[in-house]
């Protein structure tokens, strides 16, 4: 279970408060969606949870199954079961996708005191998972995200998620830049990982992704906090009316 309580975050470089008392709980096995206007702090929340530099937490807490996320290094958060699917996956020339993934999987296993995966075993597992995401062998050999199309990059994120088997997946605008078919493929990949225990926090601007990944709860975020939570119908309301009414309600 991910539990964020009264989280307050400012930029390290300038005196600008981004998150202003964000509270949110995602029980295990559930899918929650976060929607909200540009600049409301959605991406900042995902970065702060996963430990990116440049932010200062000025108050509040974030825990995963009771473990304080904010006290850990990014790689420790990953090993603890947190995964962030990036809005803009980073290209890493000269490092093979396969090498990268195997290093990641084995780093996490090592830090949890588990045995490392052998090359043969890893190959078997990744081939099966890549196939369902329509990622071919060539894409696995290529350097990480280099020369990948927008859709390929996002599918590669989902493949990483499938290989790392996290407890808590945060998807930051995974649907941005995807055509309908690519979005379906990504959604299928996510749905395949829903096992009743794994939780998801899906950040999106569009209701359309939520047609494919059905959320249990939808949160609306504005100006650094959650202003309203509800069922899937809340996403439809946003799709039809925009945020103006919701913002007015709170004001």
């Amino acid at each position: 279970m991910l539990k964020i309580e009264n989280l307050q975050v400012k930029l390290e470089e300038e005196d600008k408060q981004i998150l202003k008392g964000l509270s949110l709980t995602v029980p295990s096995g559930e899918v929650h969606a976060i929607m909200g206007p540009n600049g409301s702090g959605k991406s900042t929340m995902s970065y702060v949870l996963s430990g990116k530099g440049g932010y200062e937490v000025t108050g509040g807490s974030a825990t995963l199954d009771g473990v304080d996320l904010l006290a850990m290094e990014p790689e420790e958060r990953a090993a603890a079961g947190l995964f962030l699917a990036f809005q803009y996956p980073v290209e890493i020339p000269g490092v093979g996708n396969m090498t990268f993934l195997r290093t990641a999987v084995n780093s996490q296993r090592k830090s949890r005191g588990e045995d490392e995966m052998s090359a043969a075993e890893f190959l078997k597992v990744i081939r099966a998972k890549a196939k369902s995401l329509k990622i071919d062998a060539e894409m696995l050999k290529r350097p990480v995200n280099v020369g990948f199309s927008g859709g390929e990059k996002k599918r590669n994120e989902i493949l990483q998620m499938a290989m790392l088997e996290p407890k808590m997946c945060v998807l930051d605008e995974t649907d941005s830049g995807l055509d309908v078919d690519a979005m379906k493929l990504v959604a299928e990949g996510v749905n395949a990982l829903r096992d009743g225990k794994r939780s998801f926090l899906v950040i999106t601007h569009y209701q359309r992704l939520l047609d494919h990944i059905k959320p249990d709860v939808v949160h609306i975020m504005a100006d650094g906090r959650i202003i309203k939570s509800g069922g899937p119908e809340l996403a439809l309301e946003v799709e039809n009316n925009g945020y103006a009414d919701l913002l007015a309600e709170v004001a």
């Binding site: 996963s50 430990g51 990116k52 530099g53 290094e73 990014p74 790689e75 958060r77 990953a78 090993a79 995964f83 962030l84 990036f86 996956p89 980073v90 890493i92 990268f100 993934l101 290093t103 990641a104 999987v105 780093s107 996490q108 830090s111 990483q160 790392l164």
Partner: peptide, 10 residues
């Protein structure tokens, strides 16, 4: 950060 967020130590 991308690599570390996947569990690879610094």
């Amino acid at each position: 950060f991308y690599l570390m967020s996947r569990g690879i130590p610094r």
